[in-house]
Simulated assay, not measured.
Amino acid sequence: MAGQTPWTDTRLRAAWARGDWGAVLREYRRAAGLSQRQLEPLVGMPQPHISAIESGRRRVLTPEVKARITEGLAVPSDLTTAQPTGWAPPPELRERVAHAYATGRADARTAAYLRDVLAQHRRAEDEGSGAPLWHVVRSQLDAVTRLLPDTAGPAADELLLLAAEHAHWLSWVAWSQNHRGEALAWLDTAHGWAIDGGHTDMASWVMRVRSHFFLTSGDPVRALRTAEAARQSIDLSPGARSAATHQTAQAAAAVGERDRARRLADEALDLALQVPDESDRPGWLYFLDETRARLQHAATAYACRDWATAAGELRAALPALEGYPRDHAYYAQRLADAERRA
Protein backbone atom coordinates (compact mmCIF):
# COMPACT_ATOMS: atom_id res chain seq x y z
CA MET A 1 0.00 0.00 0.00
CA ALA A 2 2.94 2.34 0.50
CA GLY A 3 3.57 2.61 -3.26
CA GLN A 4 1.96 5.02 -5.62
CA THR A 5 -1.76 4.42 -5.96
CA PRO A 6 -4.62 6.48 -7.40
CA TRP A 7 -6.26 6.31 -3.97
CA THR A 8 -3.94 8.93 -2.52
CA ASP A 9 -5.74 11.43 -4.76
CA THR A 10 -8.00 13.73 -2.75
CA ARG A 11 -10.60 14.25 -5.48
CA LEU A 12 -10.99 10.51 -5.88
CA ARG A 13 -11.34 9.96 -2.15
CA ALA A 14 -13.86 12.79 -1.87
CA ALA A 15 -15.92 11.22 -4.67
CA TRP A 16 -15.93 7.93 -2.77
CA ALA A 17 -17.00 9.70 0.44
CA ARG A 18 -19.95 11.26 -1.46
CA GLY A 19 -20.98 7.88 -2.86
CA ASP A 20 -20.84 9.34 -6.37
CA TRP A 21 -20.04 6.28 -8.48
CA GLY A 22 -19.78 8.20 -11.73
CA ALA A 23 -17.22 10.55 -10.18
CA VAL A 24 -15.39 7.58 -8.65
CA LEU A 25 -14.86 6.04 -12.09
CA ARG A 26 -13.99 9.38 -13.67
CA GLU A 27 -11.58 10.49 -10.94
CA TYR A 28 -9.96 7.05 -10.78
CA ARG A 29 -9.25 7.17 -14.49
CA ARG A 30 -7.84 10.69 -14.18
CA ALA A 31 -5.60 9.75 -11.24
CA ALA A 32 -4.45 6.51 -12.87
CA GLY A 33 -4.12 7.93 -16.38
CA LEU A 34 -6.54 5.39 -17.89
CA SER A 35 -9.09 5.58 -20.67
CA GLN A 36 -12.59 4.17 -20.35
CA ARG A 37 -11.49 1.24 -22.52
CA GLN A 38 -8.59 0.53 -20.18
CA LEU A 39 -10.98 0.54 -17.23
CA GLU A 40 -13.14 -2.22 -18.72
CA PRO A 41 -11.16 -5.24 -17.38
CA LEU A 42 -10.90 -3.70 -13.91
CA VAL A 43 -14.61 -3.18 -13.31
CA GLY A 44 -15.94 -5.93 -15.55
CA MET A 45 -18.21 -3.79 -17.70
CA PRO A 46 -17.98 -2.47 -21.28
CA GLN A 47 -16.94 1.05 -22.17
CA PRO A 48 -20.49 2.23 -23.05
CA HIS A 49 -21.67 1.28 -19.55
CA ILE A 50 -18.72 3.08 -17.97
CA SER A 51 -19.47 6.16 -20.07
CA ALA A 52 -23.14 6.07 -19.07
CA ILE A 53 -22.27 5.85 -15.36
CA GLU A 54 -19.74 8.67 -15.57
CA SER A 55 -22.22 10.94 -17.38
CA GLY A 56 -25.05 10.17 -14.98
CA ARG A 57 -27.19 8.45 -17.60
CA ARG A 58 -26.87 5.17 -15.72
CA ARG A 59 -26.93 4.70 -11.95
CA VAL A 60 -25.07 2.14 -9.87
CA LEU A 61 -27.72 0.54 -7.67
CA THR A 62 -27.06 -3.16 -7.16
CA PRO A 63 -24.66 -4.49 -4.50
CA GLU A 64 -23.08 -6.72 -7.13
CA VAL A 65 -21.99 -3.81 -9.34
CA LYS A 66 -20.84 -1.77 -6.35
CA ALA A 67 -18.77 -4.73 -5.15
CA ARG A 68 -17.30 -5.23 -8.63
CA ILE A 69 -16.18 -1.61 -8.80
CA THR A 70 -14.86 -1.64 -5.24
CA GLU A 71 -12.83 -4.79 -5.81
CA GLY A 72 -11.71 -3.90 -9.32
CA LEU A 73 -10.43 -0.47 -8.33
CA ALA A 74 -8.77 -1.88 -5.18
CA VAL A 75 -10.47 0.61 -2.85
CA PRO A 76 -8.32 0.71 0.32
CA SER A 77 -9.71 -0.72 3.53
CA ASP A 78 -9.76 2.62 5.34
CA LEU A 79 -12.48 3.72 2.90
CA THR A 80 -14.55 0.53 2.77
CA THR A 81 -15.36 0.42 6.48
CA ALA A 82 -18.59 2.03 7.65
CA GLN A 83 -18.40 5.81 7.58
CA PRO A 84 -18.24 7.44 11.02
CA THR A 85 -21.09 9.68 12.07
CA GLY A 86 -21.11 12.89 14.09
CA TRP A 87 -18.52 15.61 14.52
CA ALA A 88 -17.17 14.85 18.01
CA PRO A 89 -14.38 12.36 18.81
CA PRO A 90 -15.95 9.02 19.82
CA PRO A 91 -14.88 7.07 22.93
CA GLU A 92 -13.65 4.03 21.00
CA LEU A 93 -10.73 6.04 19.60
CA ARG A 94 -9.45 6.78 23.08
CA GLU A 95 -10.06 3.19 24.14
CA ARG A 96 -7.79 1.95 21.36
CA VAL A 97 -5.10 4.44 22.32
CA ALA A 98 -5.35 3.33 25.95
CA HIS A 99 -4.09 -0.08 24.79
CA ALA A 100 -1.33 1.33 22.60
CA TYR A 101 1.56 -0.36 24.32
CA ALA A 102 0.62 -4.02 24.01
CA THR A 103 3.16 -6.30 22.42
CA GLY A 104 3.17 -6.71 18.68
CA ARG A 105 4.03 -4.87 15.50
CA ALA A 106 1.81 -2.64 13.37
CA ASP A 107 1.53 -2.74 9.61
CA ALA A 108 4.13 -0.06 8.83
CA ARG A 109 3.12 0.05 5.16
CA THR A 110 -0.44 0.98 6.07
CA ALA A 111 0.79 3.71 8.41
CA ALA A 112 3.09 5.13 5.72
CA TYR A 113 0.27 5.09 3.19
CA LEU A 114 -2.09 6.94 5.53
CA ARG A 115 0.57 9.54 6.29
CA ASP A 116 1.06 10.17 2.57
CA VAL A 117 -2.70 10.49 2.06
CA LEU A 118 -3.07 12.95 4.94
CA ALA A 119 -0.35 15.10 3.37
CA GLN A 120 -2.43 15.22 0.18
CA HIS A 121 -5.51 16.22 2.18
CA ARG A 122 -3.63 19.09 3.83
CA ARG A 123 -2.74 20.52 0.44
CA ALA A 124 -6.27 20.02 -0.86
CA GLU A 125 -7.65 21.92 2.12
CA ASP A 126 -5.37 24.83 1.17
CA GLU A 127 -7.27 25.18 -2.10
CA GLY A 128 -10.81 24.90 -0.76
CA SER A 129 -13.03 23.46 1.92
CA GLY A 130 -11.99 20.27 3.66
CA ALA A 131 -15.59 19.38 4.45
CA PRO A 132 -16.00 16.91 1.53
CA LEU A 133 -13.08 14.93 2.94
CA TRP A 134 -14.33 14.86 6.53
CA HIS A 135 -15.63 11.29 6.46
CA VAL A 136 -12.54 10.14 4.58
CA VAL A 137 -10.14 11.49 7.19
CA ARG A 138 -12.33 10.18 10.03
CA SER A 139 -12.13 6.72 8.46
CA GLN A 140 -8.37 7.10 8.15
CA LEU A 141 -8.15 7.97 11.84
CA ASP A 142 -10.10 4.82 12.63
CA ALA A 143 -7.56 2.86 10.59
CA VAL A 144 -4.65 4.47 12.47
CA THR A 145 -6.08 3.80 15.92
CA ARG A 146 -6.91 0.21 15.01
CA LEU A 147 -3.18 -0.32 14.51
CA LEU A 148 -2.29 0.91 18.00
CA PRO A 149 -3.27 -2.07 20.18
CA ASP A 150 -0.81 -4.22 18.21
CA THR A 151 2.06 -1.76 18.49
CA ALA A 152 4.73 -1.00 21.09
CA GLY A 153 7.56 1.42 21.78
CA PRO A 154 8.76 3.90 19.12
CA ALA A 155 6.36 2.51 16.51
CA ALA A 156 3.44 3.27 18.83
CA ASP A 157 4.80 6.77 19.41
CA GLU A 158 4.85 7.39 15.66
CA LEU A 159 1.28 6.15 15.33
CA LEU A 160 0.21 8.48 18.14
CA LEU A 161 1.73 11.37 16.18
CA LEU A 162 -0.13 10.26 13.05
CA ALA A 163 -3.37 10.02 15.04
CA ALA A 164 -2.77 13.49 16.49
CA GLU A 165 -2.20 14.90 13.00
CA HIS A 166 -5.51 13.45 11.84
CA ALA A 167 -7.33 14.77 14.91
CA HIS A 168 -5.86 18.23 14.34
CA TRP A 169 -7.06 18.21 10.72
CA LEU A 170 -10.53 17.20 11.85
CA SER A 171 -10.60 20.03 14.39
CA TRP A 172 -9.75 22.54 11.67
CA VAL A 173 -12.57 21.38 9.42
CA ALA A 174 -15.07 21.13 12.29
CA TRP A 175 -14.28 24.73 13.26
CA SER A 176 -14.71 25.91 9.67
CA GLN A 177 -18.16 24.26 9.66
CA ASN A 178 -19.11 26.08 12.91
CA HIS A 179 -18.92 22.95 15.08
CA ARG A 180 -16.91 24.90 17.66
CA GLY A 181 -17.24 22.63 20.70
CA GLU A 182 -16.46 19.53 18.67
CA ALA A 183 -13.44 21.28 17.14
CA LEU A 184 -12.02 22.02 20.59
CA ALA A 185 -12.68 18.41 21.63
CA TRP A 186 -10.63 17.19 18.66
CA LEU A 187 -7.83 19.57 19.65
CA ASP A 188 -7.87 18.24 23.20
CA THR A 189 -7.64 14.72 21.80
CA ALA A 190 -4.80 15.65 19.45
CA HIS A 191 -2.88 17.37 22.24
CA GLY A 192 -3.21 14.37 24.54
CA TRP A 193 -1.99 11.97 21.87
CA ALA A 194 0.93 14.25 21.00
CA ILE A 195 1.98 14.42 24.66
CA ASP A 196 1.57 10.67 25.10
CA GLY A 197 3.84 10.06 22.11
CA GLY A 198 6.47 12.60 23.18
CA HIS A 199 5.90 14.91 20.21
CA THR A 200 6.46 18.43 21.53
CA ASP A 201 6.25 20.09 18.11
CA MET A 202 2.75 18.72 17.53
CA ALA A 203 1.64 19.51 21.10
CA SER A 204 2.78 23.11 20.61
CA TRP A 205 1.14 23.33 17.18
CA VAL A 206 -2.19 22.14 18.57
CA MET A 207 -2.09 24.88 21.21
CA ARG A 208 -1.19 27.36 18.48
CA VAL A 209 -4.30 26.31 16.53
CA ARG A 210 -6.40 26.62 19.68
CA SER A 211 -5.08 30.17 20.10
CA HIS A 212 -6.02 30.93 16.49
CA PHE A 213 -9.56 29.69 17.13
CA PHE A 214 -9.88 31.95 20.18
CA LEU A 215 -8.48 34.94 18.30
CA THR A 216 -10.82 34.56 15.34
CA SER A 217 -13.81 34.14 17.65
CA GLY A 218 -13.10 37.42 19.48
CA ASP A 219 -11.28 36.28 22.63
CA PRO A 220 -7.76 37.78 22.30
CA VAL A 221 -6.89 37.42 25.99
CA ARG A 222 -7.40 33.67 25.92
CA ALA A 223 -5.69 33.54 22.53
CA LEU A 224 -2.59 35.23 23.97
CA ARG A 225 -2.52 32.97 27.02
CA THR A 226 -2.75 29.85 24.86
CA ALA A 227 -0.18 31.06 22.31
CA GLU A 228 2.29 31.80 25.09
CA ALA A 229 1.89 28.24 26.36
CA ALA A 230 2.54 26.93 22.84
CA ARG A 231 5.67 29.06 22.53
CA GLN A 232 7.07 28.04 25.91
CA SER A 233 7.04 24.32 25.12
CA ILE A 234 10.51 22.84 25.51
CA ASP A 235 12.67 21.34 22.76
CA LEU A 236 10.73 22.88 19.87
CA SER A 237 12.15 22.81 16.37
CA PRO A 238 12.73 26.22 14.74
CA GLY A 239 9.68 25.80 12.49
CA ALA A 240 7.33 24.91 15.33
CA ARG A 241 8.68 27.72 17.51
CA SER A 242 8.25 30.14 14.60
CA ALA A 243 4.59 29.16 14.24
CA ALA A 244 3.92 29.57 17.96
CA THR A 245 5.81 32.86 18.10
CA HIS A 246 3.90 34.28 15.14
CA GLN A 247 0.60 33.36 16.79
CA THR A 248 1.75 35.02 20.02
CA ALA A 249 2.59 38.16 18.03
CA GLN A 250 -0.87 38.21 16.49
CA ALA A 251 -2.55 37.81 19.88
CA ALA A 252 -0.29 40.44 21.47
CA ALA A 253 -1.27 42.92 18.77
CA ALA A 254 -4.93 42.13 19.37
CA VAL A 255 -4.66 43.08 23.07
CA GLY A 256 -2.76 46.28 22.25
CA GLU A 257 0.81 45.13 23.04
CA ARG A 258 2.13 46.35 19.70
CA ASP A 259 5.82 46.79 20.54
CA ARG A 260 5.92 43.25 21.85
CA ALA A 261 4.04 42.02 18.79
CA ARG A 262 6.62 43.61 16.48
CA ARG A 263 9.53 42.01 18.37
CA LEU A 264 7.83 38.61 18.27
CA ALA A 265 7.10 38.97 14.56
CA ASP A 266 10.79 39.61 13.86
CA GLU A 267 11.70 36.57 15.95
CA ALA A 268 9.16 34.37 14.15
CA LEU A 269 10.53 35.42 10.76
CA ASP A 270 14.13 34.74 11.81
CA LEU A 271 13.16 31.26 13.05
CA ALA A 272 11.30 30.41 9.85
CA LEU A 273 14.25 31.48 7.70
CA GLN A 274 16.45 29.00 9.59
CA VAL A 275 14.51 26.10 8.01
CA PRO A 276 13.82 27.11 4.40
CA ASP A 277 13.52 23.51 3.16
CA GLU A 278 10.25 21.66 3.69
CA SER A 279 12.12 18.54 4.80
CA ASP A 280 13.53 20.47 7.77
CA ARG A 281 10.08 21.26 9.17
CA PRO A 282 7.33 19.06 10.66
CA GLY A 283 4.95 17.72 8.00
CA TRP A 284 2.07 19.96 9.01
CA LEU A 285 4.31 23.03 8.54
CA TYR A 286 4.97 22.22 4.88
CA PHE A 287 3.59 25.66 3.95
CA LEU A 288 6.03 27.72 6.07
CA ASP A 289 8.48 28.65 3.35
CA GLU A 290 10.08 32.09 3.05
CA THR A 291 7.06 33.54 1.24
CA ARG A 292 4.62 32.44 3.95
CA ALA A 293 6.96 33.58 6.68
CA ARG A 294 7.16 37.06 5.16
CA LEU A 295 3.39 37.15 4.69
CA GLN A 296 2.97 36.29 8.36
CA HIS A 297 5.38 39.10 9.26
CA ALA A 298 3.25 41.43 7.15
CA ALA A 299 0.12 40.16 8.89
CA THR A 300 1.52 41.23 12.24
CA ALA A 301 2.39 44.67 10.84
CA TYR A 302 -1.22 44.88 9.67
CA ALA A 303 -2.50 43.85 13.11
CA CYS A 304 -0.28 46.56 14.65
CA ARG A 305 -1.78 49.12 12.25
CA ASP A 306 1.59 49.72 10.60
CA TRP A 307 -0.22 50.20 7.32
CA ALA A 308 2.65 51.30 5.09
CA THR A 309 4.92 48.48 6.32
CA ALA A 310 2.16 45.92 5.90
CA ALA A 311 1.34 47.13 2.40
CA GLY A 312 4.96 47.02 1.26
CA GLU A 313 5.57 43.51 2.61
CA LEU A 314 2.28 42.16 1.27
CA ARG A 315 2.89 43.67 -2.15
CA ALA A 316 6.32 42.04 -2.35
CA ALA A 317 5.22 38.54 -1.29
CA LEU A 318 1.73 38.25 -2.77
CA PRO A 319 2.70 37.23 -6.35
CA ALA A 320 4.13 33.94 -5.02
CA LEU A 321 0.63 32.89 -3.86
CA GLU A 322 -0.91 32.66 -7.33
CA GLY A 323 -1.30 28.90 -6.96
CA TYR A 324 -3.32 29.25 -3.73
CA PRO A 325 -6.50 31.12 -4.66
CA ARG A 326 -8.05 31.22 -1.20
CA ASP A 327 -4.93 32.54 0.54
CA HIS A 328 -4.18 34.88 -2.35
CA ALA A 329 -7.65 36.41 -2.05
CA TYR A 330 -7.25 36.81 1.72
CA TYR A 331 -3.90 38.59 1.55
CA ALA A 332 -4.96 40.64 -1.48
CA GLN A 333 -7.85 42.00 0.54
CA ARG A 334 -5.46 42.86 3.38
CA LEU A 335 -3.14 44.58 0.91
CA ALA A 336 -5.96 46.70 -0.52
CA ASP A 337 -7.08 47.68 2.98
CA ALA A 338 -3.53 48.53 4.10
CA GLU A 339 -2.94 50.66 0.99
CA ARG A 340 -6.18 52.51 1.62
CA ARG A 341 -5.22 53.24 5.24
CA ALA A 342 -1.55 54.07 4.64
Rank of each mutant, 00 (worst) to 15 (best):
S242M: 12
A252Q: 12
S279L: 04
D219S: 08
R281C: 04
R262P: 02
L288K: 07
S233D: 10
H166I: 07
L269P: 05
W193E: 12
L159D: 06
P282Y: 09
L184T: 01
E290T: 11
A249D: 11
R281Q: 09
G239Y: 09
V206Q: 07
D201R: 09
S237R: 05
V275C: 11
S279D: 00
S242Q: 13
V255D: 02
F213S: 01
S279K: 03
S204Y: 10
G239Q: 12
A243H: 04
L170M: 12
I195F: 04
L159G: 07
L285G: 02
T216V: 02
M207N: 02
E290S: 11
P220Y: 01
L236P: 06
R180T: 13
M202A: 15
A251N: 02
R262S: 10
L184F: 09
D289T: 12
R241H: 13
D235Q: 11
E228H: 10
F287Y: 14
V209F: 10
Q250A: 15
P276W: 13
S211V: 01
H179Y: 03
R210E: 15
W284S: 00
Q274Y: 13
L162I: 04
A183V: 07
E267G: 03
A265R: 04
R262H: 06
A253W: 09
L170Q: 12
S204F: 02
A272C: 02
S233L: 15
E165M: 13
H246K: 12
M202L: 15
N178F: 14
T226V: 07
H246L: 08
R262Q: 09
E278P: 00
R263K: 06
H166S: 02
D270Y: 00
R258D: 05
T200D: 11
V255Q: 03
L269I: 06
V221Q: 05
E182Y: 09
L159S: 10
H168S: 00
R260I: 12
E257D: 14
